[in-house]
Amino acid sequence: MPTLGAGMPEHFSSPGRQPRWMWVLPLLLVFAVISLWQGLVSFKVVPTLVLPAPSAVWMDAKMLVLQGFQGQTLWSDMWISALRILSGFLAAVLIGAPLGLWMGTHRVVFKLVDPVLQFVRPVPPLAYIPLMVVWFGIGEMSKTMVILLGTIPVIMISALAGVRSTPRQRLQVAECLGATRFQLFRHVILPSALPEIFTGMRVGIGVAWTCLVAAEMIGAASGLGWLVQIAGQDIQVGVIFVGIAAIGVLGYLMELGIRLLERRVVPWRGHT
């Protein structure tokens, strides 16, 4: 999952605290892995069909970008996958966050929706794929729906948890200033819940990628999941590598995007 790698730099490098040479470490690791890889191929420890040389993978990457594979260039696959992620993920946030906030502030809504949520949550999103394909075909709608269904519980639960974690005294202060129910929501509950919602979005984007790649592997004629799947059938390990790397890069960029948005929307995060 892309979020896993993407979460690392923040924890491991707080600028200014660590010696300057620390930035060399990740490069060192990459260099070591590529050397080991080249070694395994050069000394014929593994056949090139299973593990092509780094240079061969590089050639595959160039081929994917310039000519494409089975009629699609890498860019168009990246583009279509990104669009699918964004549509499904945005739908999940735009529907899930208000729904979670609504559940958190209204008991009746909570009692009504929570059993459904608890039922849907443990179902692996991949289980929806056949149903979505039957209902919506192998077009864009089925992918958006799989991502939406997989991601929305995460977003809803984070919004709900955000409402629940609003400190009591924050509410009491506003009540003493004469806040109405709506003002309590607008001026206290919503801003208190925002940091949790962003945490949910960062988890959710990873789930969205899992759903998308799976959906593209099962029923699609384009996208990075399709590319990896089709290359696997052709035993084109180099192309698989490039596809996985492209998923990682896109996932990382999206995680960065959410973090940037978070810094702008909730700069007070972590302060009480």
């Binding site: 009491q172 003493c176 200033l177 001026h187 206290v188 801003p191 009480t272």
Partner: peptide, 12 residues
């Protein structure tokens, strides 16, 4: 109006 032990200011 109430003032608590914690200032309970709104950080946003």
């Amino acid at each position: 109006a109430v003032v608590f032990q914690q200032p309970t200011l709104y950080p946003w």
